[in-house]
Write a protein that binds this DNA or RNA. Sequence first.
DNA 1: ATGCCTCCCCGAGGGAGA
Length: 259
Amino acid sequence: MKIASFNINGIKARAERLLEWLPESGVDVALLQEIKSIDANFPRAPFEDLGFNVETFGQKSFNGVAILSKLPLEDVTRGLPGDDSDEQARWIEATVIGTRALRLCNLYLPNGNPAPGPKYDYKLAWMERLRNRARDLLTAEEPALMAGDWNVIPQPEDAHNPDKWREDALFLPETRAAFRRILNLGFTDAFRAIDQAPLNYTFWDFQRGAWNRNDGIRIDHFLLTPQAADLLRDCRIDRHMRGRERPSDHVPIWVDLEI
DNA sequence: ATGCCTCCCCGAGGGAGA
């Protein structure tokens, strides 16, 4: 089963790219972030015509996540547990059944800039809630994954120019420590399990010709439970998507699981 | 040193992104 994560930076602006990439890539499941759309305005029909089931958790203008799946999606839940007052649409879960069940958690982690400040406080609090959900996933001892735009640069080799990011919410020591606290519960960073090389990025800024200079960062990640990691066949980044017409600033990353 | 693009809202120009 091939499962991708893709921050599309607006479904209306990216529907065309997405509709050509889905058949090309042969993904079974696509976890989308930043749909920037309310559920009612998500253009479901063209994706359903390609054979995908569509589950969305959107909001007006900002954020918003969605799951496209060729297999039926079961037990869909919306919103990260732990704060009923949180109105930002950044988390959706569902189960797909292959040769066995796989729980999918699709996340759009807060950016957190400027740091310090209330936005950074929100990011760290959100990561603490995420850690609680992650712990419960491990307790189940089943194949599960948490994937999406984590807005975390885990290590210096995950940035072309790490010094530029030293004061940034994506790379501050406290951010990286919070990410490690989740990872060290017992998850596998799927990309690093497959490829340890530097210069592998998933985001390049629109400005300053970042793409042409490969001035990128690796911030889109797949974290696998041990039972999912046992099934990992491959994990790759579709970096060619950044060079297409009217691209997102992120590109897809995908895993192939033997399930 | 610097938000230099691109998206959203909508129908001007500001907020957000990372």
